[in-house]
Computed example of a mutant assay.
Amino acid sequence: MTLIIFIIFLASVLSLVLFKVKSGSMAKWAKLFRIVTVVFSISVFTYWFIKKSAVAFVDNSVGLQVINKLPQALDFYLINVNKSDKNITLEPKHIGKIRPEYYRIEYLKMDKSDEYWIVGYLGKKNLVYFSQHSVPNKNIDQIVEVQNYINQSMKLSESAKKQVDAYNYENTKLGIWIALDFLLLFLNLALFLKKNK
């Protein structure tokens, strides 16, 4: 997705430059490029937001219910431990902030994994909960009740913290690119509407 966002950014900048081309043989091609850029950008972002808003149910997955029994709201992350013949990859995902006595449901793709970690943060950087869970039977959904501030493994929790930090950094970077793309898309649309008036 990052590559597509960057391509949209470059195309949008070029569209703004091509707005100055109003006569000659290049004018028609410039206008066509600008129209294609705007339509493509709107299509990609519409698809992306619908995909992000839809329920994240995955076929052949294991349902995971995380229940917060603690007196404070915690920000939870899920890390899926994918194992292959040569290496182990950690795949983080933000579950969200869960208030006391509330829960969230996620769906785990466990075709390359039989283990996952739950990481809980109080605030932005304060890791207060870490638990490691195995999935011996992939036909049974998982329920995790967070009742204590525990850290089951300092070594694994450090790895999890690095993964969460990298995940949040990538999301922040993606958010900045998306904001720039929206600004350029708005400018291109405004120029189209101004010309039509």
Rank of each mutant, 00 (worst) to 15 (best):
E158S: 13
T37I: 01
Y167Q: 06
N148G: 01
N196A: 15
V13N: 00
N168V: 11
K83V: 10
N168D: 08
A27H: 07
F6M: 13
E170M: 11
T46N: 08
M1Q: 12
T37W: 00
G123T: 12
I105V: 10
S43I: 06
V81P: 01
K109W: 12
L78K: 07
L78A: 05
L10C: 05
D75C: 11
I4R: 15
L18P: 03
N151H: 02
V128R: 11
G120W: 08
I67D: 03
K197M: 15
I79R: 01
R104V: 09
I67N: 07
V44M: 13
F33G: 09
E106T: 06
K138N: 11
Y107H: 15
D75K: 04
R34K: 11
S131K: 05
L184H: 08
D141Q: 05
V146Q: 02
L183Q: 06
I178F: 05
Y107A: 08
K138H: 07
F49K: 07
A27W: 04
V119I: 12
I150C: 01
G123Q: 08
L174N: 11
F40G: 07
N151R: 04
G123W: 11
K97S: 07
E145F: 03
Q147Y: 05
A179I: 02
V44L: 10
K138P: 13
V144Q: 03
N171Q: 14
F49C: 06
T89I: 03
A54C: 06
I150P: 03
K28A: 13
V135K: 02
F49G: 02
L108P: 00
V13T: 03
Q142T: 01
D75V: 02
T37N: 05
V38Q: 00
I4F: 09
K20F: 07
V128I: 15
I118M: 07
D59Y: 15
V21T: 09
K52F: 10
L108W: 04
K161M: 15
K69Y: 14
S43F: 11
Y167M: 13
M1E: 10
F182R: 01
F40Q: 04
D114W: 15
F9R: 04
K52R: 15
S84F: 09
I95S: 02
Y103E: 10
K93E: 14
S134G: 13
N139R: 12
G120Q: 07
N137T: 01
I140N: 09
T2F: 15
N60F: 06
H133I: 05
T89Q: 06
T172D: 14
Y77W: 07
S25F: 09
P71W: 08
D181G: 02
F57R: 15
Q72H: 15
K173S: 08
K125D: 12
A11H: 01
E170H: 09
N139Q: 15
A56W: 14
K162S: 05
V58D: 12
I35Y: 06
I88W: 05
K138V: 10
A11R: 00
G123K: 12
L10S: 01
K125F: 14
I140K: 10
D111N: 13
I118N: 03
T172C: 06
I67W: 04
A27D: 03
E91Y: 09
A56Q: 10
L14C: 04
V36W: 00
K52W: 14
F57G: 07
R99V: 09
S153L: 00
I105A: 08
V55G: 15
Y149Q: 03
T46E: 06
I140S: 12
K195R: 09
V17R: 03
K31P: 04
K162Q: 08
L14G: 02
K69P: 04
W48A: 09
K195C: 02
